[in-house]
């Protein structure tokens, strides 16, 4: 299984052993979220609060079935609001 770099906002470091870049083994967004929940339980309220992803620069709602491309750069952000 490939490893991808997941970038979190710095204010979440307190839940991730002071790291804001995590290397996670996952092939789909669903797997990625599961690993984050398992390894960093403090992130659960954040993950449950509504999040958006940027995968290789493309912003989107979370889709657990979405495949993660090789060497993807993934940012997890708060769910975006629009007017």
């Amino acid at each position: 299984m490939m490893a991808v770099n997941v970038y979190l906002w710095a204010s979440l470091k307190k839940f991730t052993n002071d790291k804001d870049i995590l290397t996670i083994e996952a092939t789909t967004i669903g797997e990625l979220i599961s690993v984050l929940r398992r390894d960093f339980p403090g992130l659960k309220p954040f993950l449950d609060s509504g999040i958006s992803f940027a995968i290789n620069g493309e912003l989107s709602n979370p889709n657990s079935n979405e495949s993660i491309p090789d060497e993807a750069e993934i940012y997890i952000m708060q769910k975006l609001k629009g007017g």
Partner: peptide
């Protein structure tokens, strides 16, 4: 360009 909040722009 890498945006100020992280992801690169297309």
């Amino acid at each position: 360009s890498k945006s100020s909040y992280g992801p690169k722009f297309k």
